[in-house]
């Protein structure tokens, strides 16, 4: 159908076209200046929801890393204390070797017994070591010192402290003092050393010689605990490395999802600008002429 084209129609259509082109131009400009492909959910509902999920997982990945860093600090503290306890037991071993010798007179044995008592105190002190104000060998009751003056009982809890190191993965990081330092008369390091001290004071050489075997067993037990601590440390470090990689990958995905492709946006911008200028030019020259210009 042939249409009559009126000047009002031309003008309205030119205006509508200009509006459309400049709206697109504005949208592209917004993308470039905000560096975001998505500025509101309706821009791309699927990718908005994806970007939101990625942001959430990014945040939790960072929290897991903080958890692991805390756990590593905890492990370091424990490791230092374990090393000190190991030194103390080794020193006790040397002293017992010396004290068990039949050539050692009773008063020398008394002096050795005093030093053993000091070593026991030092082991208990190491058992009370803290990380950020928390007793690391006290189980979950980290506000209670596991060892008190006057007795050898373990005052901590039986449950270990745990840290979350990944989605659905928790790791026990606390060592219970009762498992290697001792809890009263349970045959652990404290009791063995107390026995040594008693045997020295009672001048019982034969018992001292059998105590040596007990001390050897305690040294081995402690190595086992240190190996466990070291294995945990390795596991934590591996998890940390993995989380850092995951964070990098998530960041990359997030950027792919919501960041603008600058090169593409710039090309869009220039072609839209060209279209706008062309529309302006065409509009200006289509509105201008009229039959009036050609009639005398």
């Amino acid at each position: 159908m042939a249409m009559r084209i009126t000047s009002g129609m031309t003008q309205r259509n030119i205006l509508a076209d200009l509006n459309r082109v400049s709206e697109r131009l504005n949208k592209t400009h917004q993308k470039i200046s905000s560096n975001r492909e998505i500025t509101r959910p309706s821009d791309d509902p699927f990718n908005t929801s994806r970007a939101m999920a990625l942001r959430t997982s990014m945040e939790s990945t960072q929290q897991f890393q903080r958890n692991i860093e805390d756990a590593l600090g905890w492990q370091d503290t424990a490791e230092t204390a374990l090393a000190d306890i190991g030194d103390a037991i080794r020193r006790a071993h040397e002293l017992v070797v010396e004290g068990a010798s039949d050539s050692t007179p009773p008063d020398a044995r008394l002096a050795i017994a005093d030093e053993i008592d000091q070593l026991i105190e030092s082991i208990k002190q190491n058992g009370n070591v803290t990380y950020r104000g928390r007793y690391v060998f006290s189980g979950t009751t980290t506000d209670v010192p596991p060892y008190a003056d006057g007795d050898d009982a373990f005052h901590g809890s039986t449950a270990g402290v745990e840290r979350q190191i990944g989605p659905g993965v928790s790791l026990e990081i606390g060592l219970l003092g009762s498992s290697f330092i001792g809890n009263g008369a349970d045959g652990k390091a404290l009791q063995v050393l107390r026995d040594v001290s008693t045997h020295l004071r009672s001048n019982d050489g034969a018992a001292l010689r059998s105590d040596l075997q007990g001390l050897d067993a305690k040294t081995e037990e402690l190595s086992g605990v240190r190996a466990l601590n070291g294995a945990r440390q390795n596991r934590l470090e591996a998890a940390l490395g993995r989380l850092q990689e995951v964070e990098g990958a998530t960041l990359q995905q997030l950027s792919n999802t919501e960041d603008v492709d600058i090169a593409k946006a710039m090309i869009d911008f220039s072609s839209q600008q060209a279209a706008y200028q062309a529309a302006l030019k065409a509009g200006a020259s289509i509105i201008q002429p009229s039959l009036m210009d050609f009639l005398r």
């Binding site: 928390r134 979950t140 009751t141 809890s157």
Partner: peptide
């Protein structure tokens, strides 16, 4: 069960 018991906190952050 103790000052450092955190099973709830871990479960919620899960």
């Amino acid at each position: 069960g103790g000052a450092s018991a955190n099973e709830r906190a871990r479960a919620v952050s899960e």
